[in-house]
Design a binder for these strands. Structure first.
Lengths: 218, 218
DNA sequence: TGTACATCAGTGAACGCGCGTTCACTGATGTAC
DNA sequence: TGTACATCAGTGAACGCGCGTTCACTGATGTAC
């Protein structure tokens, strides 16, 4: 896992097959949904026997957990890369939208209907924290002359999720709305609720974003 | 279906068993998710044999469609009842939240991750239209001195979803944001993304609602 | 009110299917001396 | 460089299971005269 550099051919091969299994898993997930993910079906597509996959994943749940972890990591990487050019909420928003449109099923695996009975492992919390921290940085950097909100004061006393980030209440509030509003538009768009309504989802997304980044929003 | 009054005992019995099947379906849906819905399992819980259910539903898909239809109808009824006291966006918002919290799985069946390959029947469109119309009424009645937005003008030319509702562009825009912003908060709350973050979801919801109903929001 | 017939709810057996997972095994690949 | 041994990827058979769905049937309930 955390070996540095010295990779034997066998290890390289293992990593390669694991990746190939996950690639097929994503395909199947897109075709039939998360709950229809079948190890046997994946094996068949790869021209292998079913039990062979147990060399690479202990069971079905471990595969799904890996997929979820990879999805979160992918978003965290995207955010990190975007934030490398400096804190920019608008850039993050567009990165989020691109990331979501690139693979809607991946987005839903993370932010969609929760899988009943499934509980994410602890290490995912760290990735979520990083995503949130990047978002907080960007919101704290926004020009702000907005007054303190009642919910803002509540957040000041309930900022466990922000860790030790030195953001003002207004920035905390804005980071949260940033998340939920963009998710609101994105998830309904991806789920197809806008089809047939007539308007352009991209323009709607842009309008919500603009209101979020306006200096004197309220 | 649309018979008026004259209901034979047999018809009454049929309707009763159908309702009982659906009730068990909701239970199972809550326990294991929409895709794990099994006719055989429902029958077993009811103390019947599996094939017996085929007297009441042509197949599994018809059952799911019924559940989705009922969910939409339930929300439409809730909205209609709320709007009976006059157009009130704030009241609608709280009705929506109550409705969602009352049965999260029902909410996700409607607004959550779409079931792959499933397509809702046409008559559901009518129910959606009614829900949207009620929301538009309430938004049009809000005190508004907000200027025209760019997206508002776009909506004016792409208002197929609004039918022949005589709402101004600003009201159209507000109805859409009303929907997506509340969905953004609600869906993330119901999916459990706020647990462990520290703040009170109800206060967050209230804050978003307040901003939506403010007269001079922008 | 009583009999003859039609309707219909529910059963049990059976179909083929795919699932996750285990086990004992073969054969190839890598390691140690 | 060559041999002996250990590691490990992948196979095929087998397990029990539950699924959706069909079919021919029994028995109860309702209807018509």
């Amino acid at each position: 896992m955390t070996d540095t550099g010295t990779e034997t051919p066998r290890e390289r091969y293992r990593a390669q097959v694991r990746a190939e299994i996950k690639a097929h898993a994503w395909e199947q997930l897109a075709a039939a949904g998360a709950s229809a993910l079948s190890l046997n079906a994946i094996a068949k597509r790869m021209g292998m026997s079913g039990p062979a996959l147990y060399r690479y994943f202990a069971n079905r749940d471990e595969l799904i957990t890996e997929l979820i972890r990879d999805a979160y990591r992918s978003l965290a990487d995207t955010f990190r890369a975007t934030a490398a050019a400096g804190p920019d909420a608008s850039a993050l928003a567009h990165a989020l939208r691109d990331w979501a449109l690139q693979d809607p099923h991946r987005y839903f695996l993370v932010y969609g209907t929760p899988v009943p009975g499934y509980h994410a492992p602890d290490d995912i919390t760290d990735i979520v924290r990083e995503i949130m921290a990047t978002l907080l940085d960007a919101c704290a950097a926004l020009p702000s002359d907005s007054p303190a909100t009642p919910f803002g004061s509540h957040l000041q006393e309930h900022r466990r999720w922000a860790g030790d980030h030195p953001a003002e209440p207004a920035a905390l509030h804005r980071a949260l709305t940033f998340w939920t509003r963009l998710h609101g538009v994105l998830s309904l768009e991806l789920a197809g609720h806008f089809t047939g309504m007539g308007f352009d989802p991209a323009l709607f997304f842009a309008a919500e974003l603009e209101e979020l980044t306006e200096a004197s929003a309220r």
